[in-house]
């Protein structure tokens, strides 16, 4: 079996920075929070790489990303000045960046708004699957839940999204 090549910090930033940003944005709906999350994840990766022992690098990276996200959620719960959009507050008004303005077709806005209405557990699994592109096993590793639970959360999350959105059949 080939030995895993451990990337250096810049490699991680280049290869995964965009994925982490998209993950964060689809979970929070906020470009500034998402940029902060990317910075924090990369900082922790930089520190953690010294102690990282080759294994599942992606699993390790997404566990860090998730922990950063959850830390942020906890902080906001203690200081609830800015909503994290786990309910209807702030949905559909995420002060978009120029890139988002260019690409913000009506449909993607609706999907984003619907995503933000999903319970966080479902949203996380759906985003890791459909935005980041992880397999169920990788999600199970990153989120630390059984594969059966991943399967169930993705299924229920998609069904809820389907209920919230009106598409032509």
């Amino acid at each position: 079996m080939a030995e895993e090549l451990v990337p250096d910090w810049e490699d991680v930033a280049r290869r995964y920075g965009r994925k982490i940003y998209n993950y964060a944005y689809r979970l929070t709906g906020n470009p500034d929070d998402s940029a902060d999350l990317v910075q924090e994840v990369l900082l922790r990766v930089r520190k953690g790489l010294e102690r990282y022992t080759p294994g599942s690098f992606e699993g390790w990276l997404w566990r860090i990303t998730r922990n950063v996200f959850l830390d942020d959620v906890r902080k906001r719960k203690r200081r609830p000045t800015v909503p994290l959009c786990d309910d209807d507050r702030g949905v559909g008004n995420p002060s978009p960046s120029p890139d988002e303005v260019l690409s913000s077709v009506r449909l993607s806005e609706d999907v984003q708004a619907a995503l933000l209405k999903l319970p966080i557990d479902f949203r996380e699994c759906v985003v890791l699957c459909d935005v980041v592109g992880l397999t169920y096993d990788e999600i199970s590793d990153a989120v630390d839940i059984p594969v059966g639970t991943v399967r169930s959360r993705i299924h229920r999350g998609r069904k809820m999204l389907r209920d919230m959105l009106t598409w032509p059949l």
């Binding site: 940029a35 910075q39 890139d99 935005v131 998609r158 999204l161 959105l165």
Partner: peptide
């Protein structure tokens, strides 16, 4: 099945956003 497939397609075709420069400091190639 068709409804779920639609939901999945919508999620997978969401635009992939670029990372703001400030989030990726000191990256060189």
């Amino acid at each position: 099945f068709h409804e779920l497939r639609q939901a999945r397609t919508m999620l997978r075709t969401l635009p992939r956003l670029e990372v703001p420069d400030r989030a990726l400091p000191d990256i060189h190639y």
